[in-house]
Nucleic acid binder design. Structure first.
Length: 238
DNA sequence: AAGTTAATCAACCGCTTTTTC
DNA sequence: AGAAAAAGCGGTTGATTAACT
């Protein structure tokens, strides 16, 4: 049996109060991010260490960027998701000030639906067989398919005739992917997305740390390269 | 105006990975 | 080398708010 991450009894759950936030901020300002397990006690918080970590990383960190995602951020998320799948922390790592949780929520509540409306399976980024019928008022599919720019035009498609997210999910599950047929079409080839990925500027590292970091970057690079070769979405974007 | 449904997002849970001893 | 502890991650849940009937 695995030990619980912390004592369940006597720990607060649910939304954080202003006072709790302040205690956490004050403590980290004074002592830095240290051992999350012992932090709550030291900071005088009746919270699980994991909860403190999440609160700090997702909301209290001073470098957090709040507010709506910009179009270029959205484009980048789509590209990175095509490469990396649901690896939210890696994706968030390429978006300064954004957290994995935020990116994940944004994907699930916004981007995923937009892709489905466009007839793209958000799981594998392939064009589906069941494509929403062209709508004279708002022909998203054709607009997207003929675009020679980024995915920016997706935002123009928010008034597609699908009513609910349940319906969207249904379409997604019914849909059959037909990569070879669809992606070999000329319309997709027009999309010209810059997929160059630069690794984040690492902090100045020395010795062992640096070796580890370099090793990690190579592993990631290799993985991305493999994905580039195999990813249907990127065939779509090429 | 009230009730219902849908959308959003903060937080939790449990599993995996990494680090430490 | 292996076990235990700690940290990290992604999926899911639940509370709140907005939109609709």
């Amino acid at each position: 049996m695995r030990k619980p991450c912390c004592e369940k009894e006597g720990t607060n759950k649910g939304a954080w109060s202003k006072q709790e936030d302040q205690k956490l901020i004050d403590y980290i300002k004074a002592h830095g991010e240290g051992c999350w397990r012992s932090l709550p006690k030291a900071a005088g918080l009746h919270r699980c260490g994991k909860s403190c970590r999440l609160r700090w990383i997702n909301y209290l960190r001073p470098d957090i960027k709040r507010g709506n995602f910009e179009q270029d951020e959205e484009d980048l998320i789509i590209k990175l998701h095509a490469l990396l799948g649901n690896r939210w922390s890696l994706i968030a790592g390429r978006l300064p000030g954004r957290t994995d949780n935020e990116v994940k929520n944004y994907w699930n509540s916004h981007i995923r639906k937009k892709l489905i409306k466009m007839g793209i399976d958000p799981n594998n980024h392939r064009l589906n067989q069941i494509i929403p019928r062209p709508n004279p008022q708002n022909d998203c599919v054709s607009a997207a398919a003929t675009s020679s720019g980024s995915m920016s035009n997706i935002s123009a498609c928010t008034k597609a005739p699908i009513k609910s997210s349940r319906e969207i999910d249904q379409r997604a599950s019914q849909a059959t992917s037909v990569l070879e047929d669809e992606t070999s079409g000329s319309s997709s080839r027009d999309l010209n997305l810059d997929l160059t990925i630069a690794f984040p500027n690492p902090p100045l590292l020395v010795g062992k740390e640096m070796q580890k970091n370099i090793k990690g970057s190579f592993t990631m690079a290799r993985e991305i390269e493999t994905n580039l070769q195999n990813s249907p979405t990127l065939a779509l974007f090429r």
